[in-house]
Simulated scan of single mutants.
Amino acid sequence: MRRKTTTPTAATTIEELWTIEDVAAFLRVPVATLYRWRTMHTGPAAYRVGRHLRYDPATVRAWLTETAAA
């Protein structure tokens, strides 16, 4: 029996999560700054995946917009 495969559409495509290095490059800040913001609860929200931090790009962009507007 053959399995039916489908290709993802734009509506179902999920954007890849960013590493802390990706966020640091996007914001042009040192990785240490992101760690400090995380301990102070002031930076963009991150998810802990095992022992790694991962960021949702949409959340990082929303945080940046919110921070810039303040």
Rank of each mutant, 00 (worst) to 15 (best):
M1L: 02
M1K: 04
M1H: 00
R2W: 03
K4E: 02
T5L: 02
T7K: 10
T7V: 09
P8V: 11
P8S: 08
P8H: 08
P8Y: 12
P8C: 03
T9C: 05
T9S: 03
T9W: 03
A10K: 11
A10S: 08
A11P: 06
A11Q: 10
T12D: 05
T13L: 03
T13V: 08
T13I: 08
I14L: 14
I14E: 11
E15A: 11
E16A: 14
L17Q: 03
L17E: 00
T19N: 09
T19Y: 05
T19V: 06
T19E: 02
I20G: 06
I20F: 01
E21L: 13
E21W: 10
E21P: 12
E21D: 13
E21G: 14
D22K: 14
D22W: 07
D22S: 12
D22I: 04
V23I: 05
V23N: 03
V23W: 01
A25Q: 14
A25L: 14
F26I: 02
F26A: 12
F26R: 10
R28S: 14
R28D: 12
R28V: 15
P30T: 11
V31E: 00
A32R: 15
T33W: 09
L34K: 11
L34C: 05
Y35F: 15
Y35W: 15
Y35G: 05
R38A: 08
T39G: 13
T39W: 13
M40K: 13
M40H: 14
H41Y: 14
T42E: 14
G43P: 00
G43K: 04
P44M: 05
P44N: 06
A45Y: 09
A45M: 12
A45V: 13
A46Q: 07
A46V: 06
A46L: 01
Y47M: 10
Y47S: 10
R48M: 13
R48F: 11
R48G: 07
R48D: 05
V49E: 06
G50L: 00
G50M: 10
R51I: 00
R51M: 05
R51P: 00
H52Y: 12
L53V: 06
L53S: 07
R54Y: 08
R54V: 07
R54P: 03
Y55D: 01
D56A: 11
P57N: 05
A58L: 12
A58H: 11
A58W: 12
T59H: 13
V60N: 01
R61E: 03
A62T: 01
W63S: 04
W63E: 00
L64H: 05
T65H: 09
T65Q: 12
E66I: 08
T67G: 00
T67Q: 07
T67A: 12
A69M: 09
A69E: 04
A69T: 07
A70P: 04
